[in-house]
Design a protein around this nucleic acid. Structure first.
Length: 500
RNA sequence: GGGCGGGUAACAAAGUGUCUAUGUGACGGACUGCAAAUCCGUAUACGAAGGUUCAAAUCCUUCCCCGCCCUCCA
């Protein structure tokens, strides 16, 4: 089945046909690295991570490029405040921002070109733009002449006449028309400077994306994406520059991610409500955050709140319990293999559930990466699987293995069940200390230094108390363990626990 | 003013012509010492008014609200 994508360029859902069959070339506007990565970044890059993973799931080879803007007004200003070199400053934040995204469990793009390292290519492209009559030099600055590019406005639906009404030329600019934008900015004191045919200066913002995408993916490539806010003017200008320079179509599909709000408000510096990824990860599991993003469609603006994350977290528990239940069955079999003839009638019926999951997942994702619907399929599967387990206390391990394989494959696309990378050793030590303390408070000690052993010791203590109908102690142990993030369930075959 | 997207149950969020979306929460039941988990069942929807249609949350018309972009932004 083919994938349909809502293309901002045409404002329609279109069948995705790559330039080269089986290959997907995508470029996503990356971060301007002047402070830590925030949840707005996270929202966008989680969305594209899932999109990328789904393309791969469908057997495509994906070439994913994401730029790093390391030369920019805000970086220069911030570096100045700290009294250090702007490029050194941005280098530091490049590493930091990428580490933030790593911690969130977002897979890295294939390439992260940096503006500062692509200047010769940019100069080359600007030359081409001038040569083809779309750019002009004005006293050391170079501008793109918007009115010479007849397709200008096609991405954002703007028209030149309307825009001219409200546009103004800033004092000190040498633009011929207020709509024109800078390709190259004349050097100012204290700013990073590169030599160019038009004198010393630095590139304008929009040109870097045109240059980097063209040089790494070719003049025409498949997908260009970014936050909704970049549609105009950034992406509009990119289209103009790139097509002016090459004479060919630039990106074929434009994808824009709905911007995150916080408690119903726009996230912005002036409102002071910017939340850093780093801070958020102190309180929340990365997977909860990714699920939160994925349970809104990528074009919708999700509203961030504690309540939203709490709700998501509960749903996530259900998914994990089912996964763990399947794993448990598989674990106890030596080499589980699916053998259809040996399945019982109801097990054969359950095979249908697995097939349905796969089909409805793909149907949802094929339709413009409808992740909320994909999750709905997953939850339906969870319900049916639980029902199946109600009837089969010991289902066929081969069947469970097969189910697990399908679940994990789908989970991978939706960034579920990834190994955690943000648990530190310190946290483990702290937890062990707390567990030991808890055990001691019930008058017990145990020569153990693993969480597993300690929890089991606590549960034994609890069982002792419970056999004497000493419910108070039992309940206290359970409550304490729950506060430490462990779920305790008393089943007919004794207590079981799991990490939440 | 110009451009774009919305309004779906308590909240979140899909659907876009007939088919229980889904998650969290609420209520009732089973299970349990109590919980938890799980299962079974129940309730609460499509901003408003008209229209088209056998059939509308979905299409059309009008109206009312909300958000975003047009300056830097993921």
């Amino acid at each position: 089945m083919t994938i349909y994508i809502y293309n901002t360029l045409t404002k329609k859902k279109e069948e995705f046909i790559p330039v080269d069959p089986g290959k997907v070339k995508m470029y996503v506007c990356g971060m301007t690295v002047y402070s830590d990565a925030h949840i707005g970044h996270a929202r966008t890059y989680v969305a594209f991570d899932i999109i990328r993973r789904y393309f791969e799931y469908k057997g495509n080879k994906v070439h994913y490029v994401q730029n790093i803007t390391d030369v920019d007004d805000k970086i220069i200003a911030a570096a100045k405040q700290e009294g250090i070199d702007p490029l050194e400053y941005s280098k530091r934040f490049t590493d930091q921002c990428l580490a933030d995204l790593d911690a969130l469990g977002i897979r890295r793009a294939d390439q992260y070109p940096k503006a500062s390292e692509t200047i010769p290519d940019m100069i080359h492209m600007i030359k081409q733009i001038i040569h083809r009559g779309y750019g002009y030099v004005a006293d050391g600055d170079v501008y793109f002449s918007v009115e010479t590019f007849s397709d200008y406005g096609k991405l954002s639906g703007q028209n030149i006449a309307e825009m001219k009404k409200g546009a103004r030329v800033e004092p000190g600019e040498n633009k011929r028309s207020p709509l024109d934008f800078a390709l190259w900015k004349k050097a100012k004191p204290g700013e990073p400077v590169w030599q160019s045919p038009w004198g010393p200066g630095r590139p304008g913002w929009h040109i870097e994306c045109s240059t980097m995408s063209c040089s790494l993916l070719g003049p025409t490539f498949d997908i260009h994406g970014g936050g909704m806010d970049l549609q105009f003017p950034h992406h509009e200008n990119e289209v103009a520059q790139s097509e002016a320079a090459s004479g060919k179509q630039f990106a074929r599909y434009w994808m824009h991610i709905g911007l995150l709000t916080i408690n119903g408000e726009k996230m912005s510096k002036s409102l002071g409500n910017i939340i850093n990824v780093k801070d958020l990860l102190k309180a929340w599991d990365a997977e909860v955050l990714r699920m939160f993003f994925a349970q809104a469609h990528y074009r919708s603006p999700p509203d961030f709140s504690e309540k939203a994350l709490t709700d998501i977290q509960k749903g996530r528990e259900r998914l994990h319990r089912v996964k763990e239940r399947l794993e448990e069955t598989v674990k106890h079999a030596p080499s589980p293999k699916l053998s259809l003839p040996s399945l019982s009638e109801s097990e054969t019926q359950y095979m249908e559930t697995i097939k349905q999951l796969k089909e409805s997942f793909e149907e949802a994702m094929d339709n413009d990466f409808n992740t909320p619907k994909a999750f709905a399929s997953l939850y339906e599967f969870v319900n049916k699987t639980n029902r199946f387990f109600e009837q089969h206390k010991t289902p066929d391990p081969g069947l469970c293995k097969h189910t697990l394989d399908v679940l994990l494959r789908i989970g991978y696309v939706l960034t579920l069940f990834q190994p955690k990378i943000n648990t530190t050793q310190d946290a483990d030590v702290e937890l062990i200390n707390k567990l030991q303390g808890l055990l001691q408070s019930f008058g017990k000690t145990v020569e153990a230094h693993s969480t597993d052993k300690l929890i089991e010791a606590l549960l034994r203590t609890r069982e002792e108390a419970r056999t004497h109908k000493n419910w108070d102690i039992g309940d206290r142990i359970r409550k304490n363990l729950e506060q430490l993030g462990f779920e305790i369930q008393d089943t007919t075959s004794g207590p079981v626990w799991r990490k939440k």
